[in-house]
Design a protein around this nucleic acid. Structure first.
Length: 475
RNA sequence: GGCGACGUGGCGGAGUGGCUACGCAGCGGCCUGCAAAGCCGUCUACACCGGUUCGAUUCCGGUCGUCGCCUCCA
């Protein structure tokens, strides 16, 4: 099987992907906290890892991708209180939005999307194990992880415990034995409308007296859910680069100390989407929701989905990516270019054979740290060469590449159905223009073309008569 | 302050010690009644200063600048 290399945050190097069990690749990605609709920055890891999965599956790997949904969190409690909703209702509502928004990308769903609220057994057991092995302690109802009990703490984010800022956490700082410790479990508070009783998930008498009803900390849920679904030592753990510290560092440490083994073999981190040079974040207030971006990405449906995927894949996943409406429209234009090329190809194997090297370059680029912009360059090189051929080129290569990118359903650029049915007015104008042209009344023909353009149609005169093509979204 | 990343042509964005990235936009040409699309060509690109080298945007050192993490964060 083709050799894949991916950048691993822990080692800081490109490392070969070596599945433990034959061709099975297990991937866990940190998904969203559902307290509001996701923005285009949140959508980046979803797209990157869904497409990475497609690529690996295309090569013949058996891929299992898990993207969790955090539905218990301070932000959810806060947002729910603000809206006068129960945190359970808000989380359920926002989870539905997340599913709907990402469904619209047409990439399908991950193989599993575990919820923290439904993983309590695994979480509580995990915490219990950490307490038993001396890496966690309960205090005043909370349970904390003892950071200094892990001599390797810091290997992922490349920081040493000594040089870490001794910043105090907001909650429970006075109960921690060490300022670096973080909460595995937080005792319930007045303002929180949900809580779980740890002893319900443990054998009789196994729950320490000091461990109160409450909820899990953020980091432990991922260690627990990832392990329960994928086991320990799985191939790839992914997420945004802003999660490297402390979230992933903590996850890694929890699993290392509890199991004596690393959680994942390769840690992949995607760069941030930036708006006006700054990381897109709710706290900065510069967000564009995935829904909004889909709406401005042109014709609803597959076309808008492809535009958003194209926009996100135009940059290498590890680099920051500039966001603006103009960038999205720019991506849309490039989608149009491919759809236009699709008009000229024929079904079947691609030839001439010399075009095969573009297909090869496409897969080579993806195999070397999932270089999607380089792969897209190869795809466009294929398109250019196909366009320059006198005879229609077989579409197999292009369709294969598009399929890997999650754009298998891309349609040739043309009116979806008969113009008569879609836009009778345009159809009538076109007929009039054809007549004017036959009469060589070009002034009238051009005026009619202007009207068609105003209606959103491009007119293309060809040997078989004029054709109406939908125009790209105006910048 | 600590750790890390990065500064590429109008914009976005790859990459390489010497060979056209690519996309969008612009300009010229071919094609077209004219266009559109396509094709061909094109536009002072590699922050700055040193160094290594036959040769550096690509390696090394420094300067300036930007961004991320260090606190919730995809």
């Amino acid at each position: 099987m083709r050799q894949i290399r991916l950048h691993d945050t822990m080692s800081g190097e490109l490392v070969p992907l070596h599945p433990r069990e034959g061709g099975r690749v297990r991937i866990y990605v940190c998904g969203p906290t559902v307290y509001g609709r996701i923005h285009i920055g949140n959508a980046r890891p979803f797209v990157v890892f869904m497409v990475l999965k497609r690529f690996l599956a295309h090569l013949g790997y058996e891929v299992t991708l898990v993207i969790n949904i955090t539905d218990i969190n301070d932000k959810i409690y806060d947002a729910a209180r603000e809206k006068g909703l129960s945190s359970v209702d808000l989380a359920a509502q926002m989870k539905s939005c997340y599913l709907a928004d990402t469904d619209a990308l047409g990439l399908g769903r991950p193989d599993a999307e575990p919820l923290a609220s439904e993983s309590m057994q695994a979480i509580v057991s995990y915490i219990r194990t950490l307490m038993e092995t001396g890496h966690a302690y309960s205090a005043g109802g909370d349970v904390f992880f003892s950071v200094r009990s892990d001599p390797r703490y810091g290997v992922l984010s490349h920081r040493s415990v000594e040089e870490m800022d001794q910043g105090e956490g907001i909650h429970g700082a006075e109960r921690k034995r060490d300022p670096l410790d973080f909460a595995l479990w937080k005792a319930g508070k007045e303002a929180e409308d949900t809580s779980w009783e740890p002893r319900e998930y443990l054998p009789e008498g196994a729950c320490p007296e000091q461990w109160a009803a409450g909820r899990p900390g953020w980091h432990i849920e991922c260690s627990a859910m990832a392990e329960s679904l994928l086991g320990v030592g799985f191939e790839i753990h992914g997420g945004g680069s802003d999660l490297v510290f402390p979230h992933h560092e903590n996850e890694a440490s929890q699993t290392r100390t509890a199991r004596g083994e690393e959680l994942a073999q390769i840690w992949m981190h995607n760069g941030m989407v930036r708006a006006a040079g700054e990381k897109m974040a709710k706290s900065v207030g510069n967000i564009a929701s995935l829904r909004e971006v889909l709406d401005l990405a042109g014709e609803p449906g597959a076309h808008a989905a492809h535009t958003v995927i194209m926009y996100l894949l135009r940059g290498h996943y590890r680099q920051p990516l500039a966001f603006s409406a103009a960038e999205v429209l720019d991506a849309e234009r490039s989608v149009y270019r491919i759809r236009d090329a699709l008009r000229r190809v024929a079904a079947g194997q691609s030839s001439p054979a010399e075009m095969a090297h573009h297909r090869q370059a496409f897969f080579d680029a993806l195999a070397e740290d999932f270089n999607t912009p380089k792969a897209l360059a190869a795809l466009f090189a294929w398109v250019r060469q196909a366009n320059s051929q006198a005879q229609p080129v077989g579409d197999a290569d292009l369709r294969e590449m598009l399929s890997v990118l999650g754009m298998a359903d891309m349609q040739p650029l043309q009116a979806a159905g008969s113009i008569e049915a879609i836009d009778p007015q345009a159809a009538e104008l076109l007929r009039e223009r054809e007549k004017a042209r036959r009469d060589r009344d070009f002034e009238r023909a051009d005026a009619l073309r202007e009207q068609l353009i105003a209606l959103g149609w491009q007119v293309r005169d060809g040997p078989d008569g004029a054709e109406l093509i939908p125009t790209p979204t105006e910048g």
